[in-house]
Write a protein that binds this DNA or RNA. Structure first.
Lengths: 196, 196
DNA sequence: GCACCGTCATGCACTTAGTGCAAGATGCTT
DNA sequence: AAGCATCTTGCACTAAGTGCATGACGGTGC
């Protein structure tokens, strides 16, 4: 099949992919996701429609590909945390990389708005973030006390943390960014851990 | 617009809708979601394709409409719980209605499998369940200690509980139902609340 | 019975997302 | 220069979803 996809090929491919996604996001931000056709994106990027689908499986992917990469960056950060640190603390530090990655603060609100405006986009967004679980859970599993269900518990914890991040993002959007995202995140985490 | 959608009209409409969804699920279970076209569903149900889209916005909705209803049932159950009960306990009881609602145990595995097989279906499933938050959070909000962010905290808690349910479902699917769903749910909730 | 009314079902034409295929361009390797 | 794999593109096709206009159905008032 692909024993040697060649080192340089992969790199150019990644660059092109990134450029295409950028062009797409530009248009999506200008006209909205639903109002922008794939043909328009292809034209704006100067490639054929067919080629575009060679780089992205779906139109949705054009808007959400960044999330997968973010997941990988978070995983790298998480792996750097000391092994004896509380997992919730580690996760919070790892997530905070989002504050550094994401585009300028003004654009951020705009982008998040777009992601929440469209049904399937919002669903895809949630799904992609949920898939971060698969990347992060293996990293915190070894930190949990031994148990037959440790792997599953790790997934639950990571899933809950991501949910807090999502809830925080939703609230952050609601208040139009007037409260820092990670303040909201902390509130959410505190709420679910309160023994009540 | 619709000052009087008429009482009887709404009821027949709901019945037809339910019948259509049933027919669709039948086919989806037989041939798989992707391999079944909307035209086939329409034909099997004895209506035109156009009519089908009159009852369901998308093909996805045909498979996921049940989830919205489940959310409403859960909300009703939750409203019945005593007001001074621990919110996590209340939520668990409310969720347990799923064990009563859902189809025969054999079919359940099959249906859940189908929902997790397809990307957009899995995403839609997660989204619909996440929307349960909007129904359930207002019910538990008054039980939380007063605070400016109580509404948001309620959403975080409900969101986390739903995430535990989703994680449990995923694990339940992985082990092919060999462990009861709510045993897994309890493990997940315990994991995220452990102070570590 | 008959004309009037809103609602619903349907057919038709159309746009858009996404796929399979085959031909041609590109660029590296020997 | 020839050979090779990969990338791009056009073309034809399937399927989801929408807008519109027409006609069927069912009840109301006369």
């Amino acid at each position: 099949m692909a024993p040697n996809p060649s080192p340089i090929r992969l790199q150019t491919r990644a660059v092109v992919r990134s450029l295409l996604a950028q062009t797409a996001m530009q248009l999506f931000a200008e006209k909205g996701f639903d109002e922008t056709t794939v043909d328009e994106v292809a034209a704006a990027a100067g490639v054929s429609r067919r080629t575009l689908f060679n780089y992205f499986r779906t139109k949705e992917d054009l808007a959400l590909s960044g999330l997968s990469e973010q997941g990988e960056v978070i995983a790298i950060r998480l792996a750097d945390r000391p092994g004896d640190e509380d997992v919730w603390v580690s996760l919070r530090y790892a997530f905070e990389v989002l504050d550094e990655i994401e585009a300028s603060p003004e654009n951020r609100l705009e982008i998040v708005s777009m992601l929440f405006d469209n049904d399937s986009l919002r669903a895809g967004h949630a799904e992609k973030q949920a898939r971060w679980t698969d990347l992060l859970a293996p990293l915190i599993e070894p930190r949990l006390p031994a148990s037959e269900s440790r792997g599953f518990e790790a997934k639950a914890i990571v899933g809950a943390a991501i949910t807090c991040l999502q809830a925080a993002t939703e609230e952050w959007l609601r208040v139009r960014g007037s409260t820092p995202l990670f303040d909201l995140y902390d509130t959410a985490v505190a709420a679910i851990q309160k023994s009540n």
